[in-house]
């Protein structure tokens, strides 16, 4: 099973930008330790949420054929706490994409208020310059992540379900 850390995509413009949301709940066990009496979403997990949002955007741009691996956190600046009950929105944009890598910029907001800026680099690891080889099967995109975007890329699926 894959660990999915965003709840759904709310916008997806292939090869350009994507927006996802995550609801933060006190049912997440780590919040009881981080911190006792003052639960707040760890900043590292905000980076993970952005890595998934931007990583899926980058993966989809190459039709999920490449193994997209987080290679570098180019920037991570945090402006406010995220607490249980909050819904955060993750907006990711592809800044550059080439055969071997991609650079993304991202903003995290809550009710339009800035929470964080997270810029990332992803590597398409089969295209690495060192010529290293990796297992053939795509262990990054196994189907779980793709299912998150299937509806929004097909367009209209969420709207259809509203009519039912």
């Amino acid at each position: 099973m894959r660990w999915i850390w965003i709840d759904k995509f709310v916008a997806f413009d292939s090869g350009k930008c994507a927006s996802a949301i995550k609801n933060v709940t006190l049912a997440e066990e780590h919040l009881h330790d981080h911190f006792p009496g003052f639960p707040m979403m760890p900043e590292t997990l905000m980076i993970e949420a952005m890595a998934q949002t931007a990583g899926i955007l980058v993966g989809q741009a190459m039709d999920f054929k490449e193994k997209v691996i987080l290679a570098k956190i180019r920037k991570a600046v945090f402006h406010d706490f995220v607490r249980p009950g909050d819904t955060i929105r993750l907006d990711a944009q592809i800044e550059s994409i080439t055969q071997e890598a991609a650079g993304t910029t991202g903003r995290i907001t809550r009710d339009g208020q800035p929470i964080a800026e997270v810029d990332l680099m992803f590597s398409h690891i089969d295209q690495n310059l060192a010529g290293k080889t990796f297992p053939k099967e795509n262990f990054v995109f196994t189907g779980m992540f793709e299912s998150l975007v299937r509806d929004i890329i097909a367009g209209g699926a969420p709207a259809e379900s509203e009519h039912r």
Binding site: K72, R74, E95, S96, G103, M121, L129
Partner: peptide
Amino acid sequence: ESIDFLDIVFRLEK
């Protein structure tokens, strides 16, 4: 490191 070179290329382009 190696990934930084690509980062630098992207940033220079921009």
